[in-house]
């Protein structure tokens, strides 16, 4: 990439930082330049976030419809996978799956709810009284 072609598009990095790019200057030698963002990269990232937001919306509706427990909602909302949530809670994947059903969720003790609340960085009431 030539130095004059370094992309300077608006992106989510705005007002936060710029990225280093290695570019060729007018003498054909490499040097670094700062880029405020690249349209193509932003589009890919936006696309990924559109998918995630759709999943969060679906998770919310599933909880409101009584198909899933709030644990499932926060799991999706915070972009976790089972390895991540299992790491924070020290619960087994199979137990977490059970807690994601409304039936399994009802049986959870205060202590276990507190563990989940801590993992999601929310307070226990938000978990018990699901409101979005």
């Amino acid at each position: 990439m030539k130095k004059k072609d370094t992309p300077q598009d608006t992106s989510s990095l705005q007002n936060i930082t710029r990225e280093v790019c290695y570019v060729k200057n007018s003498e054909g030698k490499y040097e670094t330049d700062l880029s405020s963002g690249w349209e193509v990269k932003s589009a890919a990232l936006d696309n990924a976030w559109d998918d995630i937001n759709e999943q969060i919306e679906a998770a919310k509706n599933a909880v409101l419809a009584g198909e899933k427990s709030p644990i499932y909602y926060y799991f999706v909302k915070q972009l976790m996978d089972f390895q991540v949530l299992s790491g924070y809670t020290k619960f087994w994947k199979i137990s977490i799956k059970k807690h994601m059903t409304p039936k399994g969720f009802k049986k959870l003790s205060e202590k276990k709810l507190a563990v989940y609340a801590k993992a999601f960085d929310i307070n226990i009431d938000e978990l018990k009284n699901f409101k979005v």
Partner: peptide
Amino acid sequence: VYHLTYFPKEYRFH
């Protein structure tokens, strides 16, 4: 990366 508060939200994945 998820916990780095100085990153833009869009970049904070696990």
